[in-house]
């Protein structure tokens, strides 16, 4: 996509890096409503094939370096009605 290459160029030019997040999930609380999957701005969550204890499909993380990654925006955490998913900032590797 055009915007992505723009972002890539900008990142290379300025030497900046995207903020990174780690996605945590309490699997057995998930009811598989799909709100986190539908409204993730980076589209890094997908429906998994696994079942949880209640028989729902919890989300799964699919990241593609360097741009299609979790950027720790916290929207999935906020929209999740089940208090199941949350993000934490990923510490930079030194």
């Amino acid at each position: 996509m055009a915007t992505e290459s723009k972002t890539e160029k900008l990142l290379q030019k300025t030497g900046a890096s995207l903020p990174r997040g780690e996605v945590y999930l309490i699997e057995d609380r998930c009811k598989g409503c799909g709100l986190c999957i539908a409204f993730c701005p980076k589209h890094v969550l997908v429906v998994s094939d696994r079942f949880n204890k209640k028989g729902y499909h919890p989300p799964e993380l699919v990241e593609e370096e360097p741009l299609n990654v979790c950027i720790n925006c916290g929207f999935c955490e906020r929209i999740c009605p089940e208090f199941a998913i949350f993000v934490k900032e990923k510490k930079k590797e030194e």
């Binding site: 945590y24 609380r29 009811k31 989300p59 993380l61 949350f86």
Partner: peptide, 28 residues
């Protein structure tokens, strides 16, 4: 990098976790 399994949520201090999952329908 896949999803990390967790046991507790940041808001658990404010919730009666023993009563979760709650009664509301999926997606409510």
């Amino acid at each position: 990098m896949s999803i990390i399994k967790a046991e507790t949520h940041p808001l658990d201090d404010y919730l009666r976790t023993e009563r979760l999952p709650h009664v509301w329908c999926p997606g409510c």
